[in-house]
């Protein structure tokens, strides 16, 4: 494992911890999109179908369990926790996330590396992860006062994707036959979706102002 991959995984882990911290200690999920969180739970469920059959390393298995456990518990908190769910901006979080799932599934059935159930589900999870942030970005645009933790959560998620691209560049030059077009293209699309957010995040940081995305 290279430094970019490790840094990417750690950034991903921190993003989840920041979100859980907000939900668990402040008992608030204001500004967080339940739609995006549900999509992530689905992404991990589809991708980690091989968790008990394809052993790679202890690190790998533990991280998979953390991402599965955290994503489902975040969804649970936002839907059912009697205090947390009151802070959910239901009227603002209107993105039709079901409309993302079907096209991703169809695309995975058409474009995949191997037509098997596990491989199609893996590919589906890559396509879905690429667009899963969209409901969150739309919600951020509608939120007048984005609190620091929510801004940091999205920033860390974007940083994780950027680091994964550096990881692929590194692996491409250091490993023989390391070519994964599906992973790379969907990963690149995913990272580009953050470009706009990054721009405004750094602007607000530079000018020491609160983060605000223009409509």
């Amino acid at each position: 494992m290279n430094i970019f991959r490790l840094a990417g995984d750690m950034t991903h882990l921190f993003s989840v911890l920041v979100l859980l911290l907000k939900i668990h200690t402040i008992k608030s999920c204001a500004g967080v999109s339940l739609k995006t969180q549900e999509l992530y739970a689905l992404v991990f469920a589809a991708r980690y179908l091989d968790i008990f059959t394809n052993y790679i390393s202890l690190y790998n298995t533990v991280m998979k369990l953390i991402f599965l456990g955290s994503s489902f518990s975040i969804v649970w908190y936002m839907r059912y926790h009697k205090i947390v769910r009151r802070s959910y901006d239901k009227d603002q979080d209107t993105f039709r996330h079901y409309f993302l799932i079907l096209p991703c599934l169809l695309l995975a059935l058409l474009i995949n590396e191997k037509f098997t159930f596990k491989e199609v589900m893996w590919t589906f999870s890559l396509y879905l992860e690429a667009v899963a942030i969209l409901p969150q970005l739309v919600l951020l645009q509608r939120t007048r006062n984005i609190d620091n933790l929510t801004g940091q959560y999205v920033f860390l998620l974007g940083a994780y994707r950027a680091l994964y691209i550096l990881n692929w560049v590194y692996r491409y030059f250091t490993e023989p036959h390391f070519v994964h077009w599906i992973t790379w293209v969907s990963g690149l699309v995913q990272t580009l979706l953050y470009a706009d957010f990054f721009y405004y995040y750094f602007q607000s940081w530079k000018n020491n102002q609160k983060l605000h995305l223009p409509a």
């Binding site: 991959r5 995984d9 991402f67 491989e119 893996w122 994964y164 994964h180 992973t183």
Partner: peptide, 10 residues
Amino acid sequence: LDKILYHDEL
């Protein structure tokens, strides 16, 4: 080696 199915990334 079946590189494709060796999904070692998260």
